[in-house]
Every structure is written in structure tokens, then in C-alpha cells.
Computed example of a mutant assay.
Amino acid sequence: MKTTYIKTQKIEEIFNDLQTNFGGNLNVSAAEFKLDLNGQFGSGDIRGISLKNGMSYIEFDVDLHDDVVLNISATKNLPIYFAYCAAGSLGHSFGENGKQNILKKYQTGILTCKRAEENNLTFSKDQRTKISLIVVNTTKSENKEGFNLNKKLRNTFFEDNTIHSSIYIGACNLKIGEKIKELNTIRYTGIVRRLMIESIVHMVLAMEIQQREDDMVNAENQTGTLTISEMDTIKEISEFVSNYPENDYTLKMLSRKSGLSNSKLQEGFKLLHNRTVRDFIIHERIKKSEKLIRTTDLNISQVVYSIGFTSRSYFSKIFKQKYNCSPKFYKENQNSIAVTA
């Protein structure tokens, strides 16, 4: 087992320590850090960025050759760690001899700890592990808005200003994983990219806090009867529909393709997308229609039939419900923008 000690909250120093211990190639671009492992200790990459108001985001997507412990010391800034496991699992203990808790696939975890106490994060060897960490230093902020956020988080998770260590592991949540995936699809650069990263990280933070509140109100597991394997299948079916929304789907056909019952399929789609299977299909068709109208020369009727609809009037109705304008107006507006540009 290999142990790496992290005694700082500064993102640059963290990545320098990680590179010293794991090797690999460290790239820095516009204050974003990416460490590509070169195979000596494993494969994959570690990404990170420091955001405003004492907040940072680190993502591990690694497959290591040995069990690895990250020993992270808490600082005077009283950080709260918001974790999400998208693949594999992650062990945690307070100190080397503390009780070991396991964060499993699709679960959220929230950690608070005393000053100078150690968080031990254990990565298992020969297993792809994808973990996202949002670190919030609750005593640090750069402006009044940030101070209010940090103060509220400190008051929420350090009850009555009592500094104590705690770990919360929540129910499975597929929506958080889908939101985190958006970070890896950002193609913009500069200030636009940074604003989008901050927006998504804040949204993930809000979703993790809401997950905790939901679990406190409702002790019943949010995933109902679905197993991890069944949730994986729901994700695969969702991606298939998103890639080919124009196909003539039925609940029976998707149930047969997935191997899940109609009820489990519906349960999974409501959990992941907050929509029924039928509503999700329509949603994906409308998304594709918007892209076709914006990026192709197809007329509205051609768009309607290319995405699997048979009624132009019905298409226009639901398009307007989503985009607050008719498809014709949207297309004309796009053309006018193109001419102006």
C-alpha cells in the first residue's frame, strides 16, 4: 500500500505533491491542473481547479496498480469535502486507525473534520475509480456573497459552531453523475469556460446538499428497488435514446432491450431524468430538433419527420413549450444572427 500525504489546500501544491508521488505529466492551463499518469503507478488522470470564495474542485479518474491512501490534513479553514463516486468505490477513515467507511458507486459523501485531523481516502488497486471532490474552506471568502455562503455551510455542517468530525454517505443519485459529466464536455476557453465550470460545480454542490436533506426527511432509499447494475442499464438505455431519438420506441421494446420490467424502467428514468420514458424520448427529440434548426438548412417539415414526429402542429406546440417561441421564429432568428455575424 502506498500513502501520499497532502498537508495543504492550495491546488498548485496539491498537484505538485501528487506528481512527486505518482509521476506522470502535469499540465497547467488557465489555472486548471491535469496530471496524466504515465503507467508506472497506474493509468488515468487527476484534474483540479481553484475557484473563488475558498472553493476548489478535484476529480480522480484512475486505475492504480497498488492500493493508495491519500492522507489529507484538515486546516484552520475548516474545509468541508463534498464527494461523489461515479465509478468504483472509495474508502474513508479519520486517521489511520479510524473506522473505515465505503463510498460506493453513485453515492454522495460529505465530510467535516476537526482542525489538523487527517482524512484517509483509500483507492483500491486494479479498479477504475472516478471520484469528484468539491472542497469548501468555510472560514475563507473573498466577498460578502462568498462569506454568506461559507458561513451558512459552516453553520449547517458544524452545528452550534461545534468543531467535530463527521461523515455522511447518502443514497445513490444518478442526476449528480450526469451533471458532473457536463464538466468534461465544455469546449469553451477563457472566462466563459471558467464561468461554466463554476456554475456546474455550484449546481453539483447544491444537489449534494439537497440529497442530504432529502435523506434526512425520508429515510427510505431514494433508488427504490433498483440495484447498481440496473442503474447502469438505465444509463445505457438513456444514452441510446439520446443518440437515436428519432427511432420509433415503445416502452415494451425498451424493456425487452434493457432486460428490465416496465415498472423498473419507468422508476429508473424518473430517478435519473425526472421524466417518464415517453417524456424523455420527446425531450430528446426536441433537443435534436433545436440543433437541426440551428445548424442545418432543413426546413421545419423536414426537421419534424427526421426526428420521428408525424405531426407538425404537435411538434410546434411542444417546441414552443420548451423554447418559448415557434420553430419558424427560431429558425428565422438563427438565420438573422448568421447574416449579422
Rank of each mutant, 00 (worst) to 15 (best):
R194Q: 09
F309C: 13
V241F: 10
R278G: 04
E220D: 12
L226P: 02
S199C: 07
L271W: 11
Q210A: 14
V241S: 02
S255P: 10
G268M: 08
S316K: 10
S263K: 12
N247T: 13
N262E: 02
Q222Y: 07
I228A: 04
F280H: 09
S258C: 10
T250W: 09
G268T: 08
I307A: 09
I281L: 08
I307P: 06
K288H: 03
F309G: 09
F309H: 11
S313K: 15
E239L: 11
R294A: 11
S311W: 12
R312C: 09
L205M: 06
I191F: 05
M253A: 11
K264D: 06
V217M: 10
T310D: 07
S289R: 02
T223Y: 15
K270A: 14
L254M: 09
I200R: 03
L272V: 06
Y188A: 14
F269V: 01
T227A: 05
V304R: 07
T250I: 04
K291H: 00
S255H: 13
Y249T: 05
N243P: 07
N247S: 12
H283Q: 12
K320M: 12
L260I: 06
A219E: 15
L272F: 08
P245C: 09
K322F: 04
N274M: 04
F315H: 14
N221S: 13
E220N: 12
G224S: 03
D297M: 11
F315P: 13
E239V: 15
Y305D: 04
V304P: 02
R294G: 10
K257E: 08
L271G: 06
D248I: 06
K252V: 03
I282S: 00
S238G: 09
R194M: 08
H283D: 15
L272Y: 08
S301N: 08
N221K: 08
T310Y: 10
R278S: 11
S263I: 11
Y305A: 02
K270H: 14
T310F: 08
I300S: 05
F269E: 02
T189H: 04
K288W: 00
R212I: 02
D232Q: 12
R193S: 10
S229Q: 12
T276C: 05
Q302F: 04
R278E: 11
E267F: 00
T250E: 01
K291A: 01
R294T: 14
K264Y: 13
D279A: 15
S289C: 07
I234F: 02
Y314Q: 02
G308E: 02
K257W: 07
K317I: 05
E267P: 00
